[in-house]
Each structure stands twice: as C-alpha cells, then as structure tokens.
C-alpha cells in the first residue's frame, strides 16, 4: 500500500488520488480478506457486511450533506437510540388496539421518520436561527437523547412485543431476489443522495455554503435554509436507519448506537468529503462505510491480531485511507 506514486506525466491520465485513494483502500481490503479466509467472498458474508453497513451508511449519506454545508452532527447515534426506543414504545402501546399487522408497522415507521425530522429540525434551528456552534448544539443533544432513552428504558432494555417482532423481522432479514431490505434501502438512499449532491441546485448550495458562507450569501444562496434542510434530512435518514435497525434485535437500550456518530463522520471523511465543508462526495461516503465494516469483518474472520488491538488497526487504516488522498497535494 505504500508504493502508490502515480506517474503524473504518463500519456494516460489517471484520475486524481483523491478519487483513487478510497477505492484503492477498499480493493486492498477486499484482496486481504479474500486471501485470509475463503468464506470472505461468500454470498452470506457479503450480505452480512452490506446489511450491517446499512445503518451507518444511511446516516452517513445525510452526514455528507451536513458536513459539506459546513456543519457537523454528533447526536445521530443517541438520536437513533432514542428514536428506536420511542418507536418500540409507540408500537407496544398501539398493539392492543391495532393488533399485529401492516398498519402498526406503518405507524412505527411514521413515528421514526417524524421523530427524526423533528430532532433534526431542532438541531438545525438552534444552529442556524440561534447561531450556536454546531459542535456544541449536537454535543448537547447527544447527551439529551442518550439520557432520554436510558430514562424511557428505566436503565434496562426496551423490547418490542415478541409477536410483533416476529412479524416485523423480515424488514431486516428478508428482501427481493436474495438482496435484503437494508441493502436495497441503503442503495436507494445513496442513489438519491448522489443525484442531489452532484446534479441539483441544492447540492451546489450545500457546497457553496460550506465553502464560504459569506460569498454564498452574496451569491443569493439562502445559507440558513440550506443548512436547516441538511439537518432535517439527516434526522429523517436517522429515522429510516432506525426502521431497519429495530427489527434486527427488536430492542433498544442505553448501549444502542454508541459511537455511530463518529463512525458516520469517519466514513464521510475517508470518502473524500472535506471536514471543513465545501466539497462532498456521496459515493465516496459509501466506500468509507464499506471500508469501516470490512475492517471489523476481516478482524473477526481471522486470528491475525489480538482482539485487544482491533481499535488500533481500524485507526491505522482510517488514517492511511486519508493519507492516500493527500498524496497528490503533497507531491504537487
């Protein structure tokens, strides 16, 4: 992975390292995984990795917009836990009157999306209208949602009614043509996100806002609204991720979604989006998410390193993936 010096003078012009970096890192990981374990490329393992990437992935797509527009959201992990808890409470409460069926699942989904949107709007309102630093606002709401879910669960675990869980379970484990629902939803979110980011006015407004707020403002970009929408959209995506998460284990507790925010942010940055804002790449985020999931997967599939060192390996690969992108700047 070290000899990645790309001949800049060659006749054939390769895409820049910032584009190639994350792709190279992903390919290297895939090769390492395939060499270390024969089951790595099996359909079951690939499905597992993609499906478990979906939660962070869906959230990270929203995070790409927030970061591109010059913001940050640290609250998404605990927001997911809180929404999961709320969704379980609402569905359990509606069970006696509605019975097990499609309507109660739709009610749960609606709860998640509305709660996510409101939570996102609240973050966005405090950041844009009241002008408080995004880091501080979302650090605060991170603590608030984490405490709320602990309180709702009485320090224990909120569990979906068993019959209801069996009915809802296929939303995580089943799918169409062998592709499970989380993967399909993740793919749809990514495609829509990529189109909005690279082909619409809103995507350009996000980049302009993140790049230079004042210039964007004088160029007739509604900075405040652009940011507000990015936080609300992220909230909705957290709701969608939760809809996929709840049927998996049917429960939520204080330990749900811990550190998801940092994984999402890391995925966005590995993918080539600039942490300071101004430039975002949705497809890059997808690669970032896959890199993070694959590291964990490969470490579990091999006895290569002590499990105590898993975090260290992840850290090294995150930093390497980002260094790969900087190669070009350092050389020029």
């Amino acid at each position: 992975m070290t000899d990645t010096t790309i001949p800049q003078t060659g006749g054939l012009r390769l895409p820049s390292m910032s584009v190639l970096g994350p792709i190279i890192a992903l390919v290297v990981l895939l090769i390492i995984g395939a060499m270390l374990n024969s089951n790595f490329l099996s359909a079951a393992n690939i499905t597992n990795v993609l499906a478990r990437s979906a939660f962070i992935g869906i959230i990270a797509v929203g995070m790409t917009f927030v970061i591109t527009a010059g913001g940050l959201d640290l609250s998404v992990g605990s927001m997911a836990a809180f929404i999961a808890g709320l969704m379980i409470l609402v569905m359990n409460a509606a069970l006696p009157s509605m019975g097990i069926g499609i309507p109660i699942i739709l009610l749960g989904m609606l709860t998640a999306i509305v709660a996510g949107m409101l939570a996102g709007l609240l973050n966005g309102f405090l950041i844009t209208t009241l002008g408080i630093e995004a880091f501080i606002v979302t650090l605060g709401s991170m603590g608030i949602y984490r405490s709320l879910v602990t309180w709702l669960a009485d320090g224990g675990t909120l569990s979906l009614d068993f019959g209801l869980r069996s009915f809802y379970r296929p939303v995580y484990f089943d799918g169409i043509l062998g592709i499970s629902w989380p993967i399909i939803v993740f793919a749809v979110v990514v495609i829509i996100g990529e189109i909005i980011m690279s082909r619409t006015v809103y995507g350009r407004h996000c980049a302009a806002t993140g790049s230079n707020e004042h210039v964007a403002h004088y160029s007739n970009v509604n900075v405040r609204r652009t940011r507000l929408i990015s936080y609300a959209a992220l909230g909705i995506l957290v709701g969608i991720a939760t809809i996929m998460y709840v049927p998996r284990l049917g429960s939520a507790s204080a330990s749900t979604g811990v550190l998801w925010e940092l994984e999402a942010i890391a995925a966005v940055i590995i993918g080539g989006t600039v942490l300071k804002g101004g430039f975002g790449r949705v497809w890059g985020t997808v690669i970032g998410v896959l890199i993070l999931s694959l590291i964990g997967n490969i470490l579990n599939l091999t006895d290569f390193v002590s499990p105590y060192l898993n975090g260290a390996i992840q850290g090294v690969i995150i930093i390497l993936a980002v260094i790969l992108q900087r190669e070009r700047k350092a050389a020029s």
């Binding site: 374990n37 089951n39 790595f40 099996s42 079951a44 393992n45 597992n48 478990r52 998996r248 284990l249 429960s251 507790s253 330990s255 749900t256 811990v258 964990g296 997967n297 579990n300 599939l301 006895d303 499990p307 105590y308 898993n310």
Partner: peptide, 23 residues
C-alpha cells in the same frame, strides 16, 4: 475455536456471531 470481545453489547455480539458463523 475462537474468542472475541462482544463488549457486553447486543449489537456487537450479533456482528461477531455472524462472522463466526461465516468462519
């Protein structure tokens, strides 16, 4: 066969068990 940290956490141990089952 193998020991891994599930961190007393449901989600972590779900992931680890999936990987054990593949392995």
């Amino acid at each position: 066969l193998d020991m891994e940290h599930g961190n007393w956490n449901r989600d972590d141990s779900f992931t680890v068990m999936q990987d054990f089952l593949s392995k």
